[in-house]
Design a protein around this nucleic acid. Structure first.
Lengths: 124, 124
DNA sequence: GTCATTGTATTAAGTGATTAGTACAGTAAC
DNA sequence: GTTACTGTACTAATCACTTAATACAATGAC
């Protein structure tokens, strides 16, 4: 699962989003050690400064704990992790409705299109 | 319905998206006159150059016709408009599934959350 | 103590987006 | 012809993002 930089949004924001996803889905387990900035920067192919900015976001979210000289670790509070996962999911749902509304689709029509997409499992 | 610049994506991309939505939803009717660059730029509070770049996208989409000295007009081909509207909607659906997958939700779970959101019509 | 690793901070430079300002050519109205 | 409006083009300046290259202090391993 590599980092993907494709948007025209700032790289550090994209990194923050992808790291947030990794954390709430358990790629980096609760309470476990978190990779050092330099290592993540190398993996993503970006400057350590850029990665650091992304990590700052995750600390603000309460997902990461920083011990200045000991490195970072994922929070042990699993309810924080699960809460963040649900919150992110809920935000996606509302974003979806909002986007579809600008295209002239009601919530009912938007839901129907998703249901269609669910049945056509052909997409990966 | 004002323009909204909030993302960290380039402004002209956000403008293009919002104008595309206006066109496919009939805010600017098929075959009708399209507002001049300077007017749209003033409405959005951006530089005419920036708005022009956005309009270039819509021409590439085939939504706008440009007569260099006569101004622009919306395409008369309504099937192009409706096709674009459906295509955009379909893209949103797949984006939604893709985003939810990164959060660990299957297509079925993602559809269920949308169905929940549909029933809670409280959100506008 | 020595060394490597950690997060963090700093400065300088490069890049792309955006703005500001101006200009030009073609068309319509008068 | 004159005027106003159209899309378009160009240059210079500004700003945020990003990179590069360091440097520092604290910790653990040896």
């Amino acid at each position: 699962m590599d980092f993907e930089i494709r948007d025209s949004r700032p790289i550090w924001q994209q990194l923050a989003q992808q790291l947030r996803q990794r954390i709430v889905t358990g790629v980096y387990p609760a309470g476990g050690r978190f990779p050092p900035v330099r290592e993540l920067a190398a993996e993503a192919g970006v400057n350590p400064n850029t990665m650091q900015r992304a990590l700052g976001q995750l600390e603000a979210d309460g997902l990461l704990i920083t011990n200045r000289t000991l490195g970072r670790s994922v929070t042990e509070e699993v309810q924080v992790l699960e809460g963040m996962r649900r919150q992110l999911a809920q935000e996606r749902v509302e974003e979806y409705f909002a986007d579809m509304k600008t295209l002239g689709y009601s919530r009912g029509e938007a839901a129907a299109l998703v249901e269609e997409g669910r049945r056509g499992e052909n997409e990966q």
